[in-house]
Design a protein around this nucleic acid. Structure first.
Lengths: 110, 110
DNA sequence: ACGAGGTACCTCGCCTGTCAAGGTACCTCG
DNA sequence: CGAGGTACCTTGACAGGCGAGGTACCTCGT
């Protein structure tokens, strides 16, 4: 079973911010991390990821800078801002609330 | 905090089917039930609800029939089909998987 | 008699986020 | 030199949520 699309819609921002709360990172790496952490069951599509970055940067939750490429292509790193941290925290609370409510709504019939 | 919009996108079908798994019901009542079960924190908008009914009926997961109105307006009751029950079960499993993965992705940084 | 408020249904059109598809550019290894 | 990995980005289609608006009936208080 893979989790995609509308199932996580509205949670992508939370996921990305949560990653950036740990440390600065760049698109490709974040994607790999998410894929690994979820055991391959969850994958953000590139288009989705980059749209999200753009959105989050416009909202002032993250800032970007070009980093050293090392080997291969150049990387655009992202860093979370204080506002981003607040939002991250808020989204985490929202997720917990969602989880609780969904459990009540879905499992109550058993 | 209220849970709306993209946060529940992709979960509305699961919620509705889950309700209908318990017993036949109609739009207005389902809406009230959801609102009550969630302590008012979650509310499906009418437009969302009725589009969902339409979608679910087209997919063969529910069937509808006009019921006795009792007092007030006529009611369109919905009943879940075997295919609907299968889907309901599948969506519940999907929800559990989503929950698990989201928890890993969001809380791992603490 | 009449308006307010509750029950109950439905539709149109906008908005937003996801994603398939396509593109660019650089590096390494065989 | 081509294949495959790293890394970024854009466009356009699509689908679901929902604001706004509409219909219809009933009850209750004034």
């Amino acid at each position: 079973m893979s989790i995609t699309g509308d199932l996580i819609r509205g949670h992508t921002d939370a996921i990305i911010l949560s990653r950036l709360c740990r440390s600065d990172s760049y698109g490709y790496e974040i994607n790999k991390t998410i894929s690994n952490l979820s055991g391959g069951r969850f994958e953000l599509k590139e288009a989705t990821l980059y749209t999200a970055f753009k959105r989050l940067e416009e909202q002032g939750y993250i800032v970007s800078y070009w980093g050293d490429s090392g080997a291969g292509a150049r990387r655009r790193y992202y860093s979370i801002t204080p506002a981003g941290k607040d939002t991250c925290h808020r989204l985490l609370l929202e997720w917990k609330a969602t989880k609780q409510i969904m459990d009540e709504l879905l499992e109550e019939h058993i």
